[in-house]
Design a protein around this nucleic acid. Structure first.
Length: 488
RNA sequence: CGCGGGGUAGAGCAACGGUAGCUCGUCAGGCUCAUAACCUGAAGAUUGUCGGUUCGAUUCCGGCCCCCGCAACCA
């Protein structure tokens, strides 16, 4: 009987096309999903697109498209990128415009409402006549719209539904206290704790449909649509069958102890506070863990932005270096939880050093020796090697890395093995030894083959295609027809 | 006194009460199985700054300076 495991990315908001930050999160979640699968778990891996709300409504209008048409097109771009990033083919792709999800979000609303946690209240909105847009406080400079500083903002009173977030302070603090490593890394847990401790305010969870119709209708009130967060977050349960597919929900939400959610640091509050309060309000058990990753930045830690021209297009990277190389870079060259710079120069450097010169070259040199001397992969030697302290220690590091969602640490263990193996070739010089001491040389080469085989196995979640290639080469005793990674 | 992260060799990071490690890059030597790859060694850091605690601080405490992100209904 396989133990179920549920992991999800944040659903990207489709007001823009996929960027490197999305790619990074998809790849990380996929690596964990694959590692769990290889470990014998029955994995449900979820991703998809968040498609409602004002930004999308405006974006569609601006492009002269119906919102549905716009989101169909953009969602398709996200769907297409999944295989290019090497995601598992059975990844679940949910859209918040899916019928089932819409139904689930409405059902969720009804339950929360029934539990007395939704109420109506006047909400004042600041509106800039110049922009013809609502403005939030954070968008204002000295209380004025920075684009139209001479015009006063109009205050519009609007009646919205609110969620009683404020009463969840204590339950959330308890959750952070009791659930082990609820937020990873710990600094983020402290951050959200401090935030909740300061006190929570109810937040509005609907918009007037007359002004912004692009949302899920509020059950029982056609004049309002649900605010995107209240809709989008529900995907984590609707994706596993809530509310109607009890069997699926029981398996992947209840038996797993909840979902493991990957999200960016900008999503900390929504996922580890708002969403958890929402679940509590519907009497559903909380998520299992929230994994917060940092952002990729440009050179020098500066935020990536189109206007600065320091963005990196994941599709360009894949086109130039391939999917596997991008996965490598995400896994090992980026800090797992902190911001890290991502530039094409750095990428090339890492590619040459660790994929071409490191992994690829090692495969070529070992397979050449094996092939030239007709030496076959030996299961017995593999078994002995797996019992050595060196390999055991590395496997331990590798597993601990994955257990802590520290993909970098796990990957480092693999490259430590690669480096050790290069050293062995140099020290024992089997290519020379085989000429004078046939048995000794053969034994060395067999060990090298077994090492390569282990490297392949360890690479399976990180670089699945390369890993399969390496395993295949060692078992078939073939030199790669062309280098695995050609120097750039 | 809004919140958080950070300032360590040319670059990117690590460590932690006992004078700093790794990766890339640079230089020298070795090897020739391999993708001008690989192995060994070297050069290169007064660990932002001032002060305190201590036998001893990069590591603990306090002040200051600088950088980055966020500031809730903006995904």
């Amino acid at each position: 009987m396989k133990i179920p495991f549920y992991i999800t990315t944040t659903l990207p908001y489709v007001n823009a096309i996929p960027h490197i930050g999305h790619a990074l999160e998809f790849i990380r979640a996929d690596i964990i999903a694959r590692a769990k699968k290889l470990d014998g778990f029955e994995v449900f891996f979820n991703t998809g697109t968040d498609e409602h709300g004002i930004k999308i409504y405006q974006k569609a209008k601006q492009l002269g498209l119906e919102p549905q048409k716009y989101v169909d097109e953009t969602a398709q771009k996200f769907r297409e990128i999944m295989p290019l990033l090497g995601l598992m083919p059975d990844v679940n792709f949910i859209r918040t415009t899916d019928k089932h999800h819409v139904m689930a979000a409405q059902e969720f609303w009804k339950i929360v409402n029934k539990n007395g946690l939704i109420y109506k209240k006047n909400y004042s909105v600041k509106y800039c006549i110049g922009c013809e847009l609502e403005k939030t406080d954070s968008e204002l400079v000295d209380g004025k719209c920075p684009l139209h500083p001479l015009q006063d903002l109009e205050i519009i009173q609007e009646e919205n539904y609110f969620f009683r977030f404020s009463i969840f302070q204590k339950p959330l603090m308890d959750l952070y206290e009791k659930q082990e490593k609820f937020v990873v890394p710990n600094t983020r847990l402290n951050e959200i704790r401090a935030f909740v401790e300061r006190g929570l305010e109810d937040f509005s969870i609907s918009r007037l449909a007359s002004k912004m119709p692009w949302g899920i209708p509020v059950p029982g009130d056609e004049t309002q649509v649900m605010y995107v967060w209240f809709d989008a977050l529900v995907n984590y349960i609707s994706a596993v069958g809530w509310p109607d597919d009890e069997k699926q929900f029981k398996k992947f939400w209840l038996e797993t102890g909840g979902v493991v959610q990957y999200c960016g640091k900008d999503n900390l509050r929504q996922q580890s506070a708002m969403w958890q309060a929402m679940l509590l309000s519907a009497k559903i058990s909380p998520s299992k863990q929230i994994i917060i990753d940092g952002f990729v930045t440009g050179e020098g830690g500066i935020k990536m932005s189109k206007s600065l021209g320091n963005t990196v297009d994941p599709l360009e990277v894949v086109k130039e270096y391939g999917t596997e190389a991008l996965r490598y870079y995400v896994a090992r060259e980026l800090a797992p939880f902190e911001d890290s710079p991502f530039t094409m120069d750095k990428f090339k450097e890492a590619f040459n050093a660790h994929l071409a010169n490191g992994l690829g070259n090692l495969v070529s040199r070992v397979m050449k020796m094996a092939e030239a001397n007709g030496i076959k992969f030996d299961e017995e030697i593999l078994k002995t090697l797996l019992n050595s302290n060196e390999i055991k220690d590395l496997q331990k590091k590798y597993r601990a890395g994955f257990d802590e969602y520290n993909i970098q640490a796990a990957s480092n263990a693999v490259w430590e093995l690669i480096s050790n193996t290069d050293k062995i070739v140099q020290e024992r010089q089997p290519f020379k030894k085989i000429k004078t001491d046939k048995a000794g040389g053969e034994a060395d080469i067999k060990e090298l083959l077994a090492r390569l085989n282990i490297i392949g196995t360890m690479l399976l979640p990180i670089m699945p295609e390369t890993a399969a290639k390496i395993i295949n080469l060692t078992e078939k005793n073939e030199m790669p027809k062309e280098p695995l990674f050609m120097r750039k």
